[in-house]
Amino acid sequence: MEVRTIKVFTTVDNINLHTQVVDMSMTYGQQFGPTYLDGADVTKIKPHNSHEGKTFYVLPNDDTLRVEAFEYYHTTDPSFLGRYMSALNHTKKWKYPQVNGLTSIKWADNNCYLATALLTLQQIELKFNPPALQDAYYRARAGEAANFCALILAYCNKTVGELGDVRETMSYLFQHANLDSCKRVLNVVCKTCGQQQTTLKGVEAVMYMGTLSYEQFKKGVQIPCTCGKQATKYLVQQESPFVMMSAPPAQYELKHGTFTCASEYTGNYQCGHYKHITSKETLYCIDGALLTKSSEYKGPITDVFYKENSYTTTIK
């Protein structure tokens, strides 16, 4: 009895394709271990004539594949690729409408935090270190965002349907971005203890939790000093293409032309909904596939993004 075979390709990165001759009487799992086709788990399936010449994702289970996976995804987590594939199996079914010149995501599976993050990423200057993220990001900007969303979920250790947080998501993504040249110098002034300067680099240099107003941050924000008295913390120097200011959701007025974009969060910790506000020729609110415009805006804002380049204080 002759062994019926077909020729397929296996890959971990969709760049390096490895030619395989597979036995049609055995499952993919018996031949390769966990195997995925377009995100779908085909591990328990036997090869079919229609699979001839198709590319299958496999887990990096030998040295060659491990090197290829690390170079593309910059992670050695053995569960990463499987999590990416199972997320992709959902995100490829989502709709990605162009809204006001940006790629958004039609609401499904509690994905409003991903839509808000995706919209924000198209408006701030950011370059990702893992080629996987950078490639998928370019495709997302062009309207094909399924891979990018699935990668975000995998890097953030999230599953489809789980509630997510924009600030946490951005923080994970910033860790995989090139923020080497970003720098922030802060000064804390206390009447009792004097003053202390701190220099922050990388992710810490672009994120701040405690106030939404970048102007206020430049002037000074009140913080408790270690001595128990009130101290003032203010920005001395900022070198970065953008800054992200966050605070627990509270009524906040966004003035046209003073910011790049913002995240609105309605609801409580267990259950809520994100919308995205962007400042173009007027203010726009993007909620999944829905767009509304207004000249002014007041609502429960939790993150505001500002364009920056270089700032030095005039406070002496």
Results as ranks from 00 to 15, higher is better:
175 Q>N: 13
98 Q>A: 10
61 N>C: 15
258 T>R: 07
279 S>P: 01
177 A>M: 03
224 P>G: 07
261 C>Y: 02
235 L>A: 03
257 G>E: 03
311 Y>R: 00
207 M>W: 03
234 Y>C: 01
302 T>K: 01
209 M>D: 04
20 Q>H: 13
79 S>H: 11
296 E>F: 13
237 Q>Y: 14
125 E>H: 10
174 F>I: 00
104 S>W: 07
194 G>S: 06
6 I>C: 13
198 T>H: 12
24 M>Q: 13
219 K>R: 15
285 C>M: 00
138 Y>I: 15
55 T>W: 06
112 C>K: 01
5 T>K: 10
67 V>E: 12
204 E>Y: 07
81 L>G: 06
288 G>K: 05
115 A>W: 00
312 T>A: 09
242 F>C: 01
240 S>C: 00
104 S>Y: 00
314 T>G: 14
161 G>C: 09
315 I>E: 15
12 V>Y: 12
202 G>D: 03
276 H>Y: 01
131 P>G: 06
134 Q>G: 08
256 H>F: 09
300 P>A: 10
80 F>N: 06
162 E>K: 06
225 C>N: 02
159 T>N: 14
158 K>N: 04
101 G>E: 11
19 T>Q: 04
150 A>I: 06
280 K>A: 11
303 D>L: 00
193 C>S: 02
95 K>N: 15
252 Y>F: 11
37 L>F: 13
109 D>Y: 04
198 T>F: 15
199 T>K: 08
216 Q>S: 10
91 T>I: 00
41 D>W: 03
165 D>S: 11
315 I>A: 15
156 C>L: 06
267 G>W: 03
35 T>I: 15
183 K>N: 03
84 Y>M: 04
44 K>G: 12
259 F>H: 00
179 L>P: 09
27 T>K: 09
244 M>E: 01
165 D>G: 04
26 M>P: 06
177 A>E: 04
57 Y>T: 09
188 V>R: 08
37 L>D: 14
300 P>Y: 14
142 A>N: 14
77 D>A: 05
4 R>K: 15
138 Y>N: 13
280 K>D: 04
61 N>G: 10
243 V>R: 01
233 K>I: 14
232 T>M: 13
124 I>V: 11
316 K>N: 15
274 Y>T: 06
16 N>T: 09
229 K>V: 06
235 L>R: 01
279 S>C: 14
127 K>I: 08
80 F>H: 04
81 L>T: 08
217 F>H: 06
165 D>F: 00
174 F>Q: 02
190 C>V: 05
127 K>D: 14
203 V>Y: 14
286 I>S: 01
269 Y>W: 12
168 E>A: 06
124 I>E: 08
73 Y>S: 06
259 F>R: 02
99 V>K: 00
232 T>I: 14
311 Y>A: 05
155 Y>D: 07
80 F>D: 03
100 N>A: 15
237 Q>I: 08
235 L>I: 07
117 A>S: 07
52 E>D: 11
286 I>W: 07
115 A>V: 07
194 G>Q: 07
222 Q>H: 11
171 S>M: 12
245 M>Q: 05
166 V>W: 03
188 V>G: 00
75 T>P: 08
315 I>Y: 15
230 Q>T: 15
166 V>K: 00
278 T>E: 00
187 N>M: 14
181 S>G: 13
89 N>T: 14
179 L>Y: 00
80 F>Q: 06
275 K>Q: 01
232 T>P: 04
265 Y>D: 09
172 Y>V: 15
180 D>Q: 10
28 Y>A: 07
307 K>P: 14
173 L>N: 02
165 D>K: 06
156 C>M: 07
57 Y>V: 11
249 P>N: 01
179 L>M: 08
96 Y>G: 09
92 K>C: 10
298 K>Y: 10
62 D>S: 13
109 D>N: 11
101 G>I: 07
188 V>H: 04
128 F>Q: 06
263 S>Q: 00
55 T>R: 11
221 V>K: 01
238 Q>N: 05
201 K>Q: 13
302 T>M: 02
58 V>N: 08
52 E>A: 12
15 I>Q: 14
23 D>W: 10
107 W>K: 03
247 A>T: 02
143 G>Q: 09
32 F>V: 08
166 V>Q: 07
110 N>D: 01
279 S>N: 01
310 S>H: 15
222 Q>E: 11
244 M>Y: 01
296 E>I: 15
75 T>H: 04
48 H>S: 12
316 K>C: 15
265 Y>R: 04
40 A>Q: 14
146 A>R: 05
288 G>Y: 00
100 N>T: 13
296 E>K: 12
207 M>L: 04
188 V>N: 10
28 Y>F: 14
174 F>R: 07
295 S>A: 12
300 P>E: 09
64 T>F: 10
136 A>H: 09
96 Y>N: 10
37 L>G: 09
115 A>E: 10
68 E>P: 05
280 K>C: 10
92 K>Y: 09
179 L>K: 04
262 A>T: 04
228 G>S: 04
68 E>T: 09
122 Q>V: 06
286 I>E: 04
308 E>F: 08
136 A>Q: 10
143 G>H: 07
80 F>I: 06
96 Y>D: 03
277 I>N: 06
248 P>V: 09
264 E>Q: 07
144 E>C: 11
20 Q>D: 08
215 E>F: 05
78 P>C: 13
148 F>L: 14
263 S>T: 10
217 F>C: 02
184 R>V: 09
84 Y>P: 03
3 V>Q: 14
308 E>H: 08
156 C>K: 01
202 G>N: 03
153 L>E: 00
23 D>C: 13
191 K>S: 15
189 V>M: 09
228 G>E: 01
30 Q>I: 09
45 I>W: 14
13 D>K: 00
236 V>S: 04
289 A>L: 04
207 M>Q: 08
264 E>A: 11
231 A>Q: 03
274 Y>G: 01
278 T>C: 09
92 K>L: 13
89 N>R: 14
31 Q>F: 14
243 V>I: 10
133 L>I: 09
270 Q>G: 02
240 S>H: 00
191 K>T: 15
226 T>N: 10
137 Y>W: 09
288 G>I: 02
275 K>G: 06
202 G>H: 02
13 D>A: 07
249 P>R: 05
176 H>T: 02
107 W>M: 06
187 N>K: 12
120 T>R: 09
303 D>M: 09
59 L>V: 10
87 A>C: 05
301 I>C: 00
112 C>E: 01
154 A>R: 00
12 V>L: 08
25 S>N: 12
310 S>L: 15
282 T>K: 08
46 K>S: 13
189 V>Y: 10
146 A>F: 01
257 G>T: 05
4 R>N: 14
126 L>W: 07
144 E>R: 08
112 C>P: 02
279 S>D: 14
34 P>F: 05
24 M>S: 14
